[in-house]
Amino acid sequence: MNQQQSQQQPVSIQTLLPDHDMAYTVLADLKRVVREYATAATESSCQQIRQMFTQLTNDTLRMQGDLYNVMQQQGMYSTASPALRQEVDKQLQQQQQTQQKAQQHLQQIGLAGGQQNQQFQAYQQPQSQQQYQQ
């Protein structure tokens, strides 16, 4: 690539658009394109075209992730602030209830084995969840 910089010109491209802004415009577009590819995949009826859009979604998602990592390593992206413990505790409790109610609902309509104590079902489900996380 051409290494020549425009330092001698009165207004360099660096002044017009600093590195982090330039990188951010690419990152923002990659994010947008990932969404468009995913939408296109869901709305394709031809199997080959659906496969193509699925592949393009994955490729673009990977590029977006790579660029994000580089930007973060270069200090161009401040790390997101962590969720507070209090909020995590609260949400965990609420969402476990949601999960439990969904389980109860399935039992009521006869779609889940109802012998186990309902309170413990939420804790036994993670066996299958772990498979998805790994």
Partner: peptide
């Protein structure tokens, strides 16, 4: 995206960003 990446690859001063 191709053109945007071309601009970054030729004009960025940060080498890691440029290379990516």
């Amino acid at each position: 995206l191709l053109k945007q990446c071309g601009v970054v690859a030729t004009s960025a001063t940060n080498q890691a960003i440029k290379q990516t």
